[in-house]
Design a protein around this nucleic acid. Structure first.
Lengths: 158, 158
DNA sequence: ATCGTTTCCTTGACTCATTCAAGAAAAGGC
DNA sequence: GCCTTTTCTTGAATGAGTCAAGGAAACGAT
């Protein structure tokens, strides 16, 4: 049982150690909460963390999320009009579909092997670190309820 | 001279009429301000508008920007960590370079003719309306002052 | 195991972009 | 020019996120 508990904590804990961060129960809980809640906003993370650690301050969560983002253990995304959202899936090249109606966010893989549009035609001398792609549209549910009679012709993505 | 003044006002005014919006001096001034200031935030627009119309309320500017965005006369962009910014260039498929250091924003055209990455490999059933691409990196000035000795090997864009 | 230093967390106040609401003013069709 | 509708002004409110000071915990060294 103790072994089981240890094993349960080991992943976030190990990740923190690997990033040379002090292992605190607040950080472990925040990292676990981000794992458990896809694209959670800070409010959601705070609620999730407080299920196990009722006394965490919102500031601890903000600090932890910032620190985890800095060392690259989580990624922060912020589609226009949205508050900051966090995800554990990192290091791969994935992008996001955002529903204009219900704000659902879904991961999408980048088309494998080719990304011509992600090397801008003229980079204005910038040193580019990252290309971030957000697809805006309607999720299946919202699309169905918004225009059930319209033929589902695929909208031009660009 | 009167003709000149009319001609000066005619473009924003005509645009408003074409969009079936009431032509108010506040809206005309807001639209002109967005034309004159690339990627201006609301604060900048307010200051610019007040050069000609010292008494405009900030609310009028907020309302105008929302209305103009709704009808598609301006576009609102909001890179992570930034307040809302507006631009007049619309209808084409251009994206943005954002400097992580000084927050400079520069337009980039999409590579012409091809956009494979902008049709996600798996669209999760979404009806996609728009793909928004943001390139994060360092502008020439910040790159030069940040790491003058590092060889300028091109960072992977993805 | 305990100590001491460094880092982190709690508490509570604060900032600031944006929004809300009510009444006054202007736009545009008649 | 009048009337209705829309928009603007004024002033207060909201809420995500930040700042700052002191107490608590982490962890390397003793």
């Amino acid at each position: 049982m103790a072994e089981n508990k240890e094993r349960h904590e080991s992943e976030p804990t190990a990740a923190l150690r690997e990033s040379s961060l002090r292992v605190t129960k607040q950080r472990v809980a925040v990292l676990a909460a981000v794992c458990d809640h896809q694209h959670a906003d800070t409010e959601t993370v705070i609620r999730a963390v407080r299920e196990n650690l009722p006394e965490v301050s919102h500031q601890a969560v903000y600090d932890s999320l910032h620190t985890l983002t800095e060392v690259g253990l989580v990624r922060c995304i912020q589609p226009s009009g949205s508050v900051a959202r966090y995800e554990r899936r990192i290091g791969d090249n994935h992008h996001h579909l955002v529903c204009r109606s219900c704000n659902l966010i879904v991961d999408v893989d980048c088309t494998v092997g080719q990304a011509p549009c992600l090397t801008p035609s003229h980079d204005a001398g910038f040193v580019i670190e990252q290309a971030e792609v957000t697809f805006w549209g309607l999720c299946p549910d919202c699309a169905a309820s918004a225009a059930p009679s319209v033929s589902p012709e695929p909208a031009s993505a660009v």
